[in-house]
């Protein structure tokens, strides 16, 4: 335990993180229900702005949970990096490959090389 030198209470920080997580979730739900027009029509790197916002907020929530609740901030650099960097690298790699391939299959369907609506 990297933090066992001083066991000062973290209660205040825990509740603060809880408030932030709740607010972010509420913002996500509100955006998901009203779906603002300009966020639905603005595309950044072939994805809707709204979806980018959702994904960024999700990563922010994941960061807060890992760092504050799972106390990753108190672990040593070595442990933190061996867990976080491994996950981030492999996930980005896999997501990039599968989404590219999925998009390619979509183009094949759209190009009419295979009939699917009958």
């Amino acid at each position: 335990m990297g933090h066992d030198t001083a066991h000062e209470s973290n209660t205040k920080r825990i509740w603060n993180v809880f408030y932030i997580l709740s607010i972010v979730t509420i913002v996500e739900v509100i955006l998901g229900i009203i779906k603002p027009e300009f966020m639905m029509t603005t595309y950044i790197v072939s994805m809707k702005l709204l979806n980018w916002i959702f994904i960024i907020l999700t990563i922010y929530k994941a960061y807060l949970i890992t760092w504050a609740f799972m106390h990753m901030e108190g672990e040593t650099k070595g442990l933190r990096r061996s867990v976080v960097w491994t996950a981030i690298f492999l996930i980005c790699y896999l997501v990039f490959i599968l989404l590219t391939e999925g998009d390619y299959v979509y183009e094949v369907f759209k190009g009419g090389y295979k009939s699917w609506d009958f």
Binding site: V95, L98, L99, E101, G102, D103, V105, Y106, F109
Partner: peptide, 10 residues
């Protein structure tokens, strides 16, 4: 990611 693949496909 597999879900994302299928979703991008359709």
């Amino acid at each position: 990611a597999a879900y994302g693949f299928s979703r991008f496909k359709f």
